[in-house]
Computed example of a mutant assay.
Amino acid sequence: MSDNSVSAALDRFINRQQQCQPKPPKAIYDPEWQSACYQVEPTEHPQPNAQVPWRPVRQEENHSMFQRLSEALEVSVHPDLIAFYSRYWSDPLPARSSDGELSLLQVWNDDDMERLRSNLIGHALMLRKQKRPLTFFFACTEPDGDYFLSIDNETGVVLLEQPGKKPLRKLADSLADYLDTLEPLKIPDME
């Protein structure tokens, strides 16, 4: 699917999430870990560690992270993955699938985007060492996190994987299709 359909599916998921949780969840404010997600007025200066409301916020600018990721790995990154991580600034988003609960990984700020890049490179290098097809993770199972969900970089299909092992099974033909099957869950307040 095109990245527009992934973007639209993620928009629909966020809208459903906000309908099930009209009051924004609370995050612990960290002045050293700023994000557009914090729902505070520009004139407000919350105290460190204060609970402040937050919401996923659309990213306004394009990032070079995925171009740099492609160059580092010498491979084109699937556009669905780029659309998924480039649409919103957000903390992970809880959801329920027909297989159980999961957490959709997201990025909080530019530094978090760089941390994601490092993790994706590490994952890709591990797969190369194992001579396995390239996948990129976008979610993990809850509450244990023993499994993760990924996109096959060549085909765009959604897979269920366990670290260090071959994919267990296909979950959907595309990330957009998979996102549309998810039931958003309430985001807990951070304490």
Rank of each mutant, 00 (worst) to 15 (best):
D144H: 12
E32I: 07
I151C: 08
P22Q: 12
I187N: 05
R87E: 05
L10I: 06
C140R: 14
S70E: 11
L179I: 14
V157Q: 15
D152F: 05
R115W: 02
L102E: 01
G164L: 13
F148R: 08
Q47E: 07
L93H: 10
N49K: 15
K186W: 02
E101W: 02
Q19S: 09
N109M: 12
S70L: 07
V6F: 10
V75E: 11
Q106R: 12
L125F: 04
H123Q: 01
L127S: 01
Q19N: 07
P42Q: 05
D177A: 15
P188S: 13
Q59I: 12
D80G: 14
R117G: 00
L116C: 01
E41I: 03
D99N: 10
L69W: 04
R169M: 15
D146K: 10
P94Q: 03
M1E: 07
P53S: 02
L125I: 09
Q67C: 03
R132M: 14
E161Q: 14
F148T: 07
Y147F: 15
Q21P: 05
C20P: 00
P79R: 08
I82L: 07
S64R: 03
A8T: 15
L102H: 00
V77G: 00
Y29A: 04
A172D: 12
D99I: 10
E74D: 15
R55G: 03
V107I: 04
P24N: 12
L125R: 05
P48R: 06
